[in-house]
Amino acid sequence: MPAYVVMIREETSDPDEMARYREAAPRAREGHDVSPVAFYGAQDVLEGPDFEGAAILAFPDMNAARAWYHSPAYQRARRHRQAGSETRVFIIDGV
């Protein structure tokens, strides 16, 4: 069953750190079976608080999503995202 990593960026606190993240994150996807579904496009918040942007990445299953997230390459990139923004990240099973 597919799984999706959802990242909701609430607020950017350090644009320089986010620039470093944008450089490192695509390289962290190399070697993983991942497909971008949505990437910080236009949004229309219907309920709840507004946010800066969101990304959704599709993986074959939860194990593949976890393997990408916990990979050394993504963990290096993740440090920049965490230093530069307030972001919620979760994995959800697809149907």
Rank of each mutant, 00 (worst) to 15 (best):
P2R: 03
P2K: 12
A3I: 03
Y4A: 01
V5D: 06
V5P: 00
V5I: 13
V6F: 04
V6P: 03
M7W: 12
E10T: 12
E10P: 01
E10C: 03
E10V: 13
E11D: 09
E11P: 00
D14T: 08
P15L: 00
P15G: 07
D16E: 14
D16K: 14
E17F: 03
M18G: 02
A19V: 01
R20L: 11
Y21A: 01
R22F: 13
R22W: 12
E23Q: 08
A24Q: 12
A24E: 10
A25V: 06
A25N: 12
R27V: 04
R27Y: 06
A28S: 15
R29H: 15
E30V: 14
E30A: 11
G31N: 10
G31F: 14
G31A: 09
H32G: 02
H32Q: 02
H32N: 05
D33G: 06
V34C: 01
V34N: 05
V34E: 00
V34I: 12
S35Y: 05
S35N: 07
P36V: 07
V37W: 04
V37Q: 05
F39Q: 07
F39W: 11
Y40W: 13
Y40L: 10
Y40H: 11
A42T: 08
A42G: 10
A42M: 08
D44E: 13
D44P: 00
V45T: 15
V45N: 10
V45F: 04
L46Y: 11
L46R: 09
L46S: 12
E47Q: 10
E47M: 13
G48A: 13
G48Y: 09
P49S: 14
P49T: 13
D50Q: 05
F51D: 06
E52Y: 12
G53T: 05
G53L: 12
G53P: 01
A54T: 06
A54H: 05
A54I: 10
A55P: 07
A55M: 15
I56N: 08
L57F: 09
L57P: 14
A58P: 00
F59P: 03
P60H: 00
D61V: 06
D61Q: 04
D61W: 05
M62P: 00
N63T: 10
N63A: 15
N63K: 14
A64W: 02
A65C: 07
R66V: 02
A67Q: 06
W68S: 00
W68M: 01
Y69S: 08
Y69Q: 01
H70C: 11
S71G: 04
S71I: 00
A73T: 09
Q75S: 10
Q75G: 03
R76A: 08
R78G: 09
R78N: 12
R78F: 12
R79W: 12
H80G: 02
R81K: 13
Q82L: 14
Q82Y: 13
Q82C: 10
A83P: 00
G84H: 02
S85H: 02
E86Q: 13
E86V: 15
T87H: 06
T87K: 01
R88N: 08
V89D: 00
F90W: 03
F90D: 04
I91Y: 04
I92Q: 08
I92T: 05
I92D: 06
G94W: 05
